[in-house]
Nucleic acid binder design. Structure first.
Lengths: 376, 376
DNA sequence: TAGCAGAATGTAAACGTTTACATTAATTGT
DNA sequence: ACAATTAATGTAAACGTTTACATTCTGCTA
């Protein structure tokens, strides 16, 4: 948290006292004994067995019409809410999934998450989430939640499995339902197990966006990568190399700037680029946030985009089209990614066989105003 | 989803086959019987009672050193993971909190969420989240989760209580632990109950940022609001009016443009502003995303910021300083808001009395490049 | 009318913990 | 050395559901 954030306390009129209402004390309210009713009391009230209540509520067709109506009415009447813990314990299903994510406030991620939440909710699942900040211990502790029966499955945004090495090595370790989103697992971690993955084809995408630049006549294309260890970065980099090779252009390591999927990396790495003697005519940022940081530094140094330098990003976050200039980038089907993740995960949880271990969703390069032909 | 997103399927080399590893079938792996061990088996293995195991693990000081070591070792050895459902059922505590939020992909929200997650995690709680998209039914269904014992408390970003009206009216309705984040509850919903709130002083903030504009000599300040029903919008609007009054400037309704906290609203409302005969010299957007939309449309219409028009935002999302021009805005202490929310909530859950029903955190107007004196 | 199938309901065990209470072991004071 | 404490452990009930199995009811057929 930067110095800019050293807030001074500002005293001000208390906006919170809509004091036309008189407020009861809330704590005492909470301290009241739970008025809640359980299945037993409900059964007793109705003079029937708990089994009937349960059936009327969960398997309405296994019960007579009269019975069904009677207990459903009573349930509504009394405000009966079945205790999911009791149910979960008995059924060994939680109807929760956990999503493990390095940074939930990343624009691309939060888009996918939103979609996940919606899809899960549609199928009666809730989603817990764990923001790991890339910390291994955090990953592992969240991964543990399915073994402690707090969740039925995992959607993972990391290229690491959320389990400790010792667990992974263990003979009787059982892989819980898990699907990877956007990041392929490192094969050394796989240990012979195939984990479903939903992603785009990052190498194709990297190749295409590079080709776009190439087609515009660019020959010196700097690259600001994400975390160099991440498969998506590696794949996009491979795509970049492929495109160069296809165009018979020599790959030059000095044009590669190792960064991160962050604004700051984009900004600082661009400064580095600018500080070098000969400037590239284009910069390929491996994510849109990075591209924004890049645009920022470019403008600060009075190099104009796209006139002086073309810039492309990756992801097509919702802000991208509002950048100045509007960003050329490759769009990922955020909604579909999220949806597929939960579809697959829930299928696995339900014990269905998965036909496709990895689903590759279509991407699309969208050309906007941050790139232009080098000759013009 | 716009037409731009009509992806064509692109066939491409399957990047996923690192086929140097041979993959076992995953489904069959999952289908294996649960190898997991329970407290009973662990107890039997050690030849002790389940009570001792439980104590050694949860109340290590209530047990002899030898015993503690023995079972902890065995637990690690066997990979014993206590079933939280069993525990929750017994203890009536879930160690979950749920956060109910209209849009998790909103930049400001996701910042707060991240902070919430961290704080909760630090205190041993997990967080579930529900993205309601502003839909009342969704709010209510998520609110229900504490009554179904899936969570111990609620952090709510809406100005509505996540309970049905009939529940609220009900005589024996018991308010669960809940705290509001950023949005004050509508007083009519309060029904006599005081709900903790953590927020900034929106009217002071609105007043200050308006005053900033006023000090620069601006007299015609257009305002693009958030959802006009939301208290935060109302409060910021009030601040705007207050500042005008202090400066002896007449409030003019035609300068008020009712929008939303979105990029699109910023863009479209700015177009409206521009279409009117006399232009304001400044625009106050009630959130940064809106401001970005505003900047975008301004630029598209060749009005330059801040030369022709000054623009201010609200929130200071992480992108704000990277906008072009860098955005003058009011910073909210995102991290602190999240932290305080969980502190208070967990205190309430623990049955402690809350001294402060509403905590007002300090904000700060941060001046960057999107505003300038009107004379210059 | 007796017999019987099928539907409707009831009985009670089970899920995996925690914990009040009972018991046994260890420690202290005299 | 023997009570009297205190510490350590064990026993078994309880949490709130679901569900296999047993029982009762209903309506038909022969």
């Amino acid at each position: 948290m930067s110095a800019e954030y050293l807030f001074e306390t500002n005293s001000s009129p208390d906006i919170a006292s809509d004091s036309d209402v008189e407020l009861r004390d809330w704590k005492s309210d909470y301290a009241k004994p739970m008025a809640d009713i359980g299945i037993k009391q409900l059964a007793k009230i109705l003079g029937i067995s708990t089994a009937s209540v349960s059936r009327a509520l969960n398997n309405p067709d296994r019960v007579s019409d009269a019975m069904r109506k009677r207990v459903q009415d009573a349930a509504k009447q009394t405000g009966y809410r079945p205790n999911k813990m009791g149910a979960s314990l008995r059924t060994a299903k939680t109807k929760n999934i956990i999503v493990i994510i390095p940074d939930i406030s990343d624009s691309f991620n939060s888009g996918v998450i939103r979609s996940i939440e919606r899809a899960a909710s549609d199928r009666g699942y809730s989603v817990l989430f764990g923001d790991t900040q890339g910390i291994r211990e955090a990953e592992i502790s969240y991964g543990d939640m399915v073994r402690t029966r707090q969740a039925d499955g995992i959607i993972c945004f990391s290229h690491n499995l959320p389990f400790s090495d010792s667990d992974l090595d263990s003979e009787n370790f059982k892989m819980p339902p898990i699907v990877n989103s956007c990041e392929q697992l490192q094969s050394l971690q796989l240990a012979g197990r195939a984990i479903p993955l939903v992603t785009i084809d990052n190498v194709a995408a990297g190749r295409e966006i590079t080709k776009h630049l190439l087609d515009l006549g660019h020959r010196e294309i700097a690259l600001i990568t994400g975390d160099i260890d991440s498969p998506s970065t590696q794949q996009r980099l491979l795509g970049y190399k492929l495109a160069l090779k296809e165009a018979n252009i020599e790959f030059r390591q000095e044009l590669i700037y190792e960064g991160e999927y962050t604004l700051e990396a984009g900004s600082s790495k661009t400064a580095e680029i600018l500080s070098n003697s000969k400037r590239p005519s284009a910069i390929f940022c491996m994510c849109d946030e990075t591209a924004l940081g890049c645009l920022y530094t470019l403008k600060k140094n009075n190099v104009s985009v796209p006139t002086d330098i073309s810039v492309v990003g990756f992801d097509d976050i919702k802000f991208a089209r509002y950048f100045s200039p509007a960003l050329t980038t490759v769009a990922q089907p955020v909604d579909e990614i999220g949806k597929q993740c939960v579809e697959i995960l829930l299928d696995v949880i339900d014990g269905q066989t998965i036909d496709q271990k990895t689903v590759i969703l279509p991407h699309k390069v969208v050309v906007r105003d941050s790139t232009q032909s080098i000759s013009s």
